[in-house]
Amino acid sequence: MDVGLLSFIMPIVHKEWALTNSQTGLISSISTIGMICGGFFFGYLADRIGRKDTLMLSLLTFSIGNFVLAFAQGFDSFLIIRFFVGMGLGGELPVAATYVSDLYSGAKRSRMLILADSFWALGWLVASFLSFALNGILSWRGLLIVTAISAFFAIVVRKHVPEIKQPAKKEHHFTISKFLNFKTIMLWLAWFMVMFSYYGMFMWLPGIMTSKGNSVVDSFGYSVIIIVAQLPGYFTAAWLTKKINLRYIFAIYMVGTAIGAVLFGQAQTPVATVICGCILSFFNLGAYGTIIAITPSIYEPAIRGTMTGLAEGIGRIGAVIGPLLVGVLIDQKLGINAIFVIFMISLLVGAAAMLLIPVKKQAEVNEDQ
């Protein structure tokens, strides 16, 4: 919901403060940078002080941060506060995935992680309806205050979510180099390609379609339909965990995303745009949910939070580079078809990287535990 509302708030802030396009883009970039730092910091903290306490801290960080952000008086203060909001959000995602991973095992762990991630789409739906329903009543500041109400969920977490006790372990000094092996590099590459393609395509494709005269992509109904299409993508991926290994599911959905991207780029009519947009959304978010399920399962509990946070952080570097690269390529007059080829290659590279990850037999996701 937080990320979704930001996408609706940015154009309003852009107009109200007479920002340049570069300044408006920096708002999105600083949020992503904050999420990268938050993934690293809170992931590490989850392994040190526990998942529950870290989850509450990250939740309070971005909720209270949004409340303070509602009173920002200028661009500079907005950027600084938004960085900390991004930190909290970037920390919550891997810590929540780590908690669920600790709670379950085998195929049930995979299903629960994918289903938990499907609430990302529900958050986007809430953001869409809030923006549509309250835009004429509340200013962007009011919408941020509504988002800040999520801080009260920390009370629910504190009261009803138990801490998972980790087995006693020897004290050790964590160093990235200790775990920087082939498995981790391939996982990071897969994460990078998922986010590179997702943010590169979803930020630019609507603009490309609009430039072709296909105004349906600007409508509220289109946004809702595309978001709703994400849910069956998650659900079918969760169902497939009963049938095949998660790495194969991820590869299938990445290839499906590549096909969907090409179809979407070539769509000309409103009906074709909606159908192809749904295909793209279905496969891309299914792949995202699957890699969320894979990542914490690869590592032992003692380092699970840290490594999950690092993996998502590496992925978010791709989220920064993807949209920037597309903008540069368009300015250089590179054809849209050539840009789609780049996305296709990146998606296929991500699928191949995941398939190359060696997985121990006991960690296979089709265990009947």
Rank of each mutant, 00 (worst) to 15 (best):
I345A: 14
G313F: 11
K361W: 00
S197N: 14
M35L: 12
L324G: 10
S22T: 15
V328L: 14
Y234N: 10
S58K: 08
L189D: 01
L189N: 05
G327D: 00
P94H: 08
I80Y: 07
A293V: 11
G309P: 14
K212H: 13
G142H: 05
I185C: 02
Y99V: 08
A46K: 01
T295K: 02
I155V: 11
F182A: 06
A133Y: 08
N181A: 07
I33E: 02
G277V: 11
M209H: 06
G318E: 06
L6Q: 07
S128I: 14
P232D: 15
I80V: 15
S219T: 15
A267G: 03
Y222C: 11
H172V: 12
Y248L: 10
G200E: 13
V271T: 15
V161M: 13
V156F: 14
I249R: 03
L246F: 02
V262H: 09
I226E: 10
G4M: 08
A72E: 10
T269C: 10
E364H: 10
A251T: 12
F153D: 07
M186F: 07
I317P: 02
T308E: 08
E16P: 04
A293W: 03
L125T: 12
V3Y: 13
N284K: 06
I9T: 06
G43L: 07
E300Y: 09
L89C: 03
V3P: 01
I149Y: 02
K52H: 07
S58Q: 09
C276N: 15
L280K: 00
A267F: 10
V255Q: 04
G38A: 08
I145K: 06
I330W: 08
L246V: 11
L138Q: 11
D368C: 05
D218C: 00
I145P: 03
D2M: 10
G25C: 11
F129K: 06
K242V: 02
M186V: 03
A251W: 11
V365N: 03
H172R: 13
R141L: 09
D47N: 14
A351Y: 06
A261I: 15
S118L: 03
S139D: 13
F8K: 03
L103G: 02
F75C: 10
L55Q: 01
I330G: 01
M87K: 05
Y104E: 01
I244A: 02
L280S: 13
E171T: 12
F84I: 10
F182I: 05
G286A: 14
T257A: 14
A237D: 04
E92T: 10
G200L: 05
L60C: 12
Q369M: 08
L89F: 04
I279H: 03
I321R: 08
P270H: 13
V126E: 05
S131P: 08
E92M: 13
I114C: 09
S118D: 11
I321L: 13
